[in-house]
């Protein structure tokens, strides 16, 4: 093997090679987004969520009926057709319009309840975690006691007493719903506040509020988002469950839960569309939120980061 002599000259040191980081650096969010995009199931969930939101907005207006309009004379229990895409129910109401109207109620309740949980949870958990010590002790003791109460039973009790309606359900769902979020936020804040960049900000004289909202919350946002992506479907499920028990929004307002409850009779008859469409939409809603939430959790989990 012939190697030219000049190859044995000393090579200049490759300074840039030496301390260079060998792979391109990606920020946390770029990395998370890249991983989320790669997760086809989660992306499918996201797309379906968007479609469901769009349909719940425009769906009720696609056909010339209202969710409460009855047609008792010749419109009862009609099978799906070009006039009634999802057929009609035993009172002659259009199932398509009612289903999307119900989906709208579900989404409003789910998202509103989720956001209220988020706000209360972030404030409560943030303060408990940041202040620590006695304040934390007392605040978390309160959470512990409330945590011991069975969630749906408390909600049922509230609904039995309160006047039924959209806001009643949202309030009932959030009374104990924020506990989870508060715990997650507190845990995150406790963990983060010991880290150097926070100590640094504090040394520089940043106020408590500023540290909390400028430093701690943005860094805790990952777990908070994941939590939110699971509280929304939980609230949607709870609403359907309560409506099914007759404790939800009251007739004639359509809710997926009440639609399913009132169509149980079709088990023994052939009007499958009355059950299948609302049941399908609620299942699809929960499924897409759950799948998306799973994907989000996997994408944001720093332990999975390689």
């Amino acid at each position: 093997m012939e190697i030219p002599a000049e190859k044995f000259e000393r090579a200049p040191r490759r300074q840039e090679n030496e301390e260079a980081i060998k792979r391109p650096s990606v920020t946390y969010w770029q990395d998370a987004w890249r991983r989320l995009k790669k997760n086809r199931l989660a992306m499918a969930g996201l797309v379906i969520i968007c479609l469901l939101v769009i349909m719940s907005i425009i769906g009720p207006h696609l056909l010339p009926y209202t969710y409460y309009e009855q047609n008792l004379e010749n419109g009862k229990n009609l099978a799906p057709s070009s006039e009634h895409w999802f057929g009609t129910d035993d009172l002659g109401r259009d199932v398509f319009v009612r289903t999307w109207h119900g989906a709208r109620i579900s989404l409003i309740i789910g998202i509103t309840a989720g956001l209220i949980d988020l706000i209360i949870g972030v404030i409560y958990g943030g303060i408990a975690g940041y202040r620590g010590g006695r304040v934390d002790e007392i605040m978390m003791r309160i959470v512990d006691v409330l945590w011991g109460l069975p969630y749906l039973l408390v909600v049922i009790m509230l609904l039995v007493v309160l006047k039924p309606g959209l806001w009643t359900i949202i309030i009932a769902l959030t009374v104990t719903g924020w506990l989870n979020m508060a715990r997650v936020v507190r845990g995150q804040v406790m963990q983060l506040k010991e880290q150097e960049f926070v100590l640094c900000a504090r040394t520089l004289g940043a106020s408590t509020k500023r540290i909390l909202f400028k430093h701690l919350i943005p860094n805790a946002i990952g777990p908070i988002l994941v939590m939110l992506s699971f509280t929304i479907p939980n609230a949607i499920f709870a609403e359907a469950f309560l409506s099914f028990l007759g404790l939800g929004v009251q007739a004639p307002v359509a809710s997926l839960g009440t639609m399913i409850e009132s169509s149980l009779i079709v088990v023994l008859s052939d009007e499958w569309w009355r059950l299948a469409f609302p049941a399908g939409v609620i299942s699809l809603t929960l499924l897409s939120f759950n799948v998306f939430g799973d994907g989000l959790r996997d994408a944001l989990d720093p332990k999975m980061r390689k």
Binding site: I3, E6, K7, F8, E9, R10, A11, R13
Partner: peptide, 8 residues
Amino acid sequence: PYAMFICH
């Protein structure tokens, strides 16, 4: 510190 061209 003693790397030559051939080494690379």
